[in-house]
């Protein structure tokens, strides 16, 4: 995906590597989830499809891995993981860096935002606050339930993905999702030239496909590299914590904390628990906010005002 040339070769390397002694490599990759990428220069031996043993840089292999999880492999989760996200509403000031990073990395046009930041206000008397909303990756996903062709599915690591090569575009999942999460490719998506020939993976959703549904995917390509989703790393205020429920650990990049402790101490909750969808995304209440609430100014109006003054 990132480097177009040698793409196929690398995929073969990866497959061969995983199939043979390279399982060690996979294990190390998984262990290093949430560790930052090191420029190691470390060499690993992998077997090519035609039986040659070759030596490549370990970081090299991992990079290739991110783009090469085929639709079939992408149906299985990352072993041993149960991903969870915690969004601390008291820290959000609507910086929208998360959204920009998300849209940039998933090559999304302006109208298809996977991550939305809502201005919430429960009633006239209650205070407004910002609520970032990715896909909730529900444990009882209504979208997966209604899909007629198994195009959207739930993985063992908790992630709900869409196979855009399978999707028939009936949009039942969009009607079924109570959180307005899913967006549709109403027209032929504009794909940058360097991605035009990339092999499709549900883990990257690149290249996007006309007439199919897409949504936030928790960046499984990043997770496979041991990195955090783009929104988490992009947030300047540490709003997003991401981690593994099995390890009971979440991190926002700066601090790593026990998930259960965070829930207990900050009264974590899930949005619309009553629907019974069991989201994988938790919220911390917008109490003791570190930023005063400031309404968003629409960019055009801002410019207009500046012109007037």
């Amino acid at each position: 995906m990132k480097e177009n040339d040698n793409n196929t070769d690398r995929r073969n390397f990866l497959k061969a590597g995983l199939l043979t002694g390279g399982s060690l490599l996979a294990a190390s990759a998984l262990q290093s989830v949430f560790s930052t990428e090191k420029d190691s220069g470390e060499k690993v031996k992998v077997l090519t499809t035609d039986g040659k043993l070759v030596e490549v840089d370990s970081s090299h292999v991992k990079k290739a891995q991110s783009c090469c999880v085929a639709p079939k492999e992408a149906r299985v989760g990352i072993p041993g993981k149960k991903f969870v996200m915690v969004i601390d509403l008291s820290r959000c000031k609507d910086a929208l860096k998360c959204q920009k990073a998300c849209s940039k990395h998933h090559l999304l046009p302006e109208e298809n935002k996977w991550l939305k930041v809502f201005k919430m206000q429960e009633s006239a008397e209650t205070a407004p606050y910002w609520m970032p909303k990715p896909c909730f990756h529900c444990d009882h996903p209504p979208c997966v339930k209604v899909c007629p062709v198994d195009a959207t599915y739930k993985r063992t690591d908790g992630i709900v993905l869409i196979d855009n090569e399978r999707c028939i575009g009936c949009r039942f999942c969009m009607a079924a999702c109570p959180y307005s999460t899913r967006v549709f490719n109403w027209k032929e998506p504009e794909i940058p030239a360097e991605y035009a020939n990339a092999s499709y993976s549900p883990e990257t959703s690149v290249p996007r496909k006309k007439g199919t549904v897409e949504k936030c995917d928790f960046c499984p390509d990043m997770l496979r590299q041991g990195k955090l989703p783009h929104c988490v790393t992009a947030c300047p205020n540490g709003v997003y914590y991401f981690g593994d429920l099995n390890e009971d650990t979440v991190t926002n990049g700066d601090e790593t904390v026990r998930f259960s402790a965070l829930m207990r101490d900050k009264a974590g909750y899930r949005y619309m628990e009553s629907l019974g969808t069991e989201p994988s995304v938790y919220y911390l209440p917008a109490a003791n906010r570190i930023f005063p609430f400031k309404d968003r100014v629409v960019e055009e109006n801002k410019e207009e005002k500046e012109h007037q003054h």
């Binding site: 339930k145 209604v146 899909c147 007629p148 062709v149 198994d150 195009a151 399978r166 999707c167 028939i168 575009g169 009936c170 949009r171 039942f172 549709f184 490719n185 006309k210 007439g211 199919t212 549904v213």
Partner: peptide, 26 residues
């Protein structure tokens, strides 16, 4: 006509999920 990908209508028969009300309707 309402389908985003009418070219994939055969997916209904190959990958059909009986749990989906759309399959019941079909």
């Amino acid at each position: 006509v309402d389908m985003g990908r009418p070219d994939r209508i055969w997916h209904m028969f190959v990958y059909g999920r009986i749990q989906s009300p759309i399959m019941w309707d079909v």
